[in-house]
């Protein structure tokens, strides 16, 4: 993947992250284990989420994301471990902890025969909303998910993306302390997907804590303050995007393509302290460097000085895909 060197979206992100670190803990999951017969779907998963923080669970199919979320939401009783939401233990005979969560299940969970509004109102009532509050929140959410003008239509007449948006809307109607989204963009066209991601970003700005599962690393990178990589039911690593990328050794790749003296160019850049390795790939020099953004200018100078006339320079920084590969030896997507 190619990242532009200019622009620094991480700056924004880390700013929010710092704020989140001092905020109160909204979710605590401790040593969660769930077995289905011989399969241990979740095997000792622990993490915490603070108010206003968006926490991502990134993992491939069958990694245990939904199972983890089901325990967090009190749908499954863990074989071991515990969950607290807003300081209230989840499970047992009490439903108190459930008041604080809003779940957006991976599979659509709306009534096809009810209109968008009726779906929202029904679930809103079950969440304890009444009267004018219910009406007002329903209107706000319909607006947010862009279905205000289709509110009266039965949801079975909606497009896939609209159904998805309604599915999400139901989850945030009662302004939960913790919004849990299980792969909410699966099977959605790029445009709807973008609008869904924008809504989620807005929620987190409002101070809602978000637990977000996905197997799209782009979504995790874009949305999440912290990310846990899950595979085979275990958390392989957890941290901010940059922290995770450091795990790979933090090495970037620079590809220099051009004509002239490739050998001389290689010899010149090889001497530089930032450069760890140089490989010739046809007409291209592939450099492994420790910090591409600062090293790029001297490298280009050295190469051209040695008689290499450059046609193209390409920088790739490691992404979560490389992190996943590094940690598990597998590709994130099959």
């Amino acid at each position: 993947m190619n990242l532009s060197v200019t622009g620094e979206p991480e700056a924004l992100r880390s700013g929010r992250g710092e704020g989140a670190n001092v905020a109160e803990k909204v979710l605590g999951a401790q040593g969660l284990v769930k077995r289905f017969g011989p399969v241990t779907a979740v095997d000792g998963v622990s993490f915490e989420i603070a108010a206003g923080e968006t926490f991502g669970l990134l993992g491939p199919n069958g990694a245990g994301k939904t199972t983890t979320i089901s325990m967090v939401a009190g749908l499954l009783v863990p074989d071991a471990g515990s969950v607290t939401v807003a300081g209230v233990p989840m499970g047992g005979s009490s439903v108190e902890a459930k008041r604080h969560i809003g779940l957006v299940p991976q599979d659509l969970a709306i009534y096809p025969d009810l209109s968008a509004r009726a779906n929202l109102e029904y679930f809103g009532r079950l969440q304890g909303l009444r009267g004018s509050t219910l009406r007002q929140r329903t209107a706000e959410v319909l607006e947010l998910i862009g279905l205000a003008d289709r509110a009266k239509e039965p949801s079975k007449k909606f497009s896939g993306g609209m159904k998805r948006r309604l599915n999400i809307g139901v989850g945030l109607l009662h302004r939960p302390t913790l919004l849990i989204l299980d792969e909410p963009t699966v099977g959605v066209d790029p445009q709807s997907r973008n609008s869904i991601l924008e809504s989620i970003e807005a929620l987190s700005v409002e101070g809602m804590a978000v637990l977000y599962t996905t197997h799209y690393m782009e979504e995790a990178e874009r949305l999440c303050d912290r990310i846990a990589i899950i595979d085979d039911g275990r958390l392989q690593a957890e941290g901010t995007r940059d922290q995770l990328i450091e795990l790979t050794g933090g090495v970037d790749t620079i590809r220099l393509t051009g004509s002239g003296s490739l050998d001389a160019g290689a010899a010149a850049v090889e001497q530089m302290p930032a450069v760890r390795r140089v490989v010739r790939d046809h007409g291209t020099l592939v450099l492994t460097v420790s910090n591409a953004p600062t090293a790029i200018a001297p490298i280009v100078n050295a190469a051209t000085g040695a008689g290499l006339s450059l046609a193209d320079v390409e920088i790739s920084r490691p992404d979560l895909e490389s992190v996943f590969l590094h940690l598990t030896g597998k590709a994130l997507r099959d």
């Binding site: 089901s70 009190g74 749908l75 459930k98 779940l103 299940p105 599979d107 969970a109």
Partner: peptide, 13 residues
């Protein structure tokens, strides 16, 4: 239909 998951995630026994 999946709505049962949602119902059970709500403060409903």
């Amino acid at each position: 239909q999946g709505t049962l998951r949602r119902l059970l995630s709500m403060p409903v026994r």
